[in-house]
Design a binder for these strands. Structure first.
Lengths: 156, 156
DNA sequence: GGCGTTTAAATAAGTGTCTTAATGAAATAG
DNA sequence: CTATTTCATTAAGACACTTATTTAAACGCC
């Protein structure tokens, strides 16, 4: 089989995918509005990543930055917007008052889940078009690719 | 198998991948510099997409915009930079002087190939870590995902 | 041939997301 | 108790997009 050709396809596909992923889904707004939350939210992929991270409990800004894969200032910025939209809140860690813990605003847990749900839909549709094996391979490739790029292009 | 979990993984992975793909590889600069081309180039994925598109012959700005998946002004901008770096050139279509044809600068064909090669490396490494079947499934998933997002999130 | 409409590309203005560098405030070490 | 380190934020700036507008050429039509 021609791997060369596959590589070329990926090379052309990746940037396109990247742009599409970056686009704020139009759906989320509706979801939020329907609940009467005072938001004209633009929830970006980064925001969703934060919400996912938070679903496993409160996290510090630094931890979130690492989870999401951005610099601390970028994380601050993402959190700012979520706070602004009333979805999460900041509080000081009692043990170490330098660290700022981020957590869902009480009651927002469910809303956050809904928002994520919207983001998930297209992915779900894709995964469900694949066989189990294909799905596994797909995720495996995605993970490998992310790691590979993260490490930085290795010289031959 | 738990597809839910796979979906969550993808949801977390995609934005990270997106950011990594967006980063200009450090390698290209060296490639270019080595050839004595007066460039401190920042070649982005979009630029690479254009170079790929051009490898099949001259293209109009509009065609390139469509190939790459961006608006015409964005294409103009991408082309601007490539022209600035002396890699491609604009010329008018004789048949219709409104359309601007973009093509490699003579001799730059090879350089472009090199630059693409750098971009390809990490992808190549990923693909080659997969079995034939996995690779096929990976690309298939990528394609489905891109199409799915492109169509816009479909309401249930 | 002239005139309004359409089409291609470029320009202008603005937005969002990231980066690094500098700042502030709290913890830790000696 | 001061010096250093660490966490978060603010500041400044780079990019890659977007839509709306402008300019130039082509087309259709009388």
């Amino acid at each position: 089989m021609d791997r060369e050709q596959l590589i070329d396809e990926v090379l052309m596909l990746l940037p396109a995918l990247m742009r599409l992923v970056g686009r704020p889904g139009p759906v989320e707004m509706g979801e939020i509005a329907r609940r009467g939350i005072p938001v004209d939210a633009h929830i970006s992929p980064g925001h969703v990543q934060i919400l996912i991270s938070l679903s496993r409990g409160p996290r510090s800004v630094g931890q979130l930055a690492e989870d999401v894969g951005v610099s601390p200032p970028a994380a601050t910025q993402l959190i700012d917007k979520l706070v602004e939209h009333g979805m999460v809140e900041r509080r000081h860690d009692h043990a170490d008052r330098r660290v700022v813990l981020v957590d869902y605003v009480p009651g927002m847990h469910e809303v956050a889940r809904r928002i994520m749900e919207d983001r998930r839909k297209p992915i779900e549709r894709t995964i469900n078009s694949l066989t189990d094996e294909e799905a596994r391979a797909f995720v495996k490739g995605l993970k490998l690719m992310t790691e590979g790029l993260g490490t930085g292009p290795v010289e031959s």
